[in-house]
Amino acid sequence: MPRDRANPAAAPARGGARRAAAEEPQRVTATRGGALDEASTTWLRTLAADGAERDAACARLHDLLRRAAHREVARRAGQLRTTGTELDDLALQAADDAMVSVLGKLGEFRGESRFTTWAYKFVVLEVSSKVARHRWHHDAPTVAETDWSALPDRLGLGPEAYAVQRDLVRAVRRAVEAELTERQRGVFVAAVLDGVPLDVLAIELGSTRGALYKSLFDSRRKIRERLVADGYLDTLVRHR
């Protein structure tokens, strides 16, 4: 990890080399100096050991992942329509699955973070995907009439003059209908107008978070270009 808590002086100096590493994460390792902290080294050594030492390390790791999963599930409990044992089950399942991933990918750990941070990432991602599946299961998106009147609320617009909201909705709707592919339109309507979380929508559409984000990203750009071309956003362009 970049800041070794046991030895703050070991933190690499800021400078050109670190700035040059921006956007090239594969170079981070080279600029870190490669020294693993003691706790991470111990984790790697004991998990690679034989017999009782490895068993004990696995038990410790599972305990750590279980506690991390409970904490993460508790943090996200507000997104779930359930409490009690179902939350406990979800956390335990996430910890078990994260355990399998961590042990299976030990060889891929590059020491670019503390070992525990790397392991927690698997917990967070497992909880994330299980929460999305839970939400999809209990509250699957439904295909309904496109409700354009929801747009101002979804964008968090304050109480605007009715005429402003009407013009804005009309302009966006025209851009969506003219510029987006059918697929992009479907994703935009579900994610923006219906407020379906991307992870939940990904399950519904058999897609991925990344693919849907990219679709929305392209849609936002195309809609904006159209609104600029139509003269709705031109003053803002000049301001910036």
Binding site: R3, E23, P25, L157, R220, Y232, L233
Partner: peptide, 30 residues
């Protein structure tokens, strides 16, 4: 409303997307 809409539609060309973000998430988080 138009300013808020503009902020929502504006995309950052540096945005690396979900896959790359999740790949380096533990490094970025630390």
């Amino acid at each position: 409303g138009w300013t808020r809409l503009d902020a929502f539609l504006r995309t950052d060309p540096r945005d690396v997307g979900c896959d790359e973000t999740l790949r380096v998430l533990e490094i970025y988080a630390e």
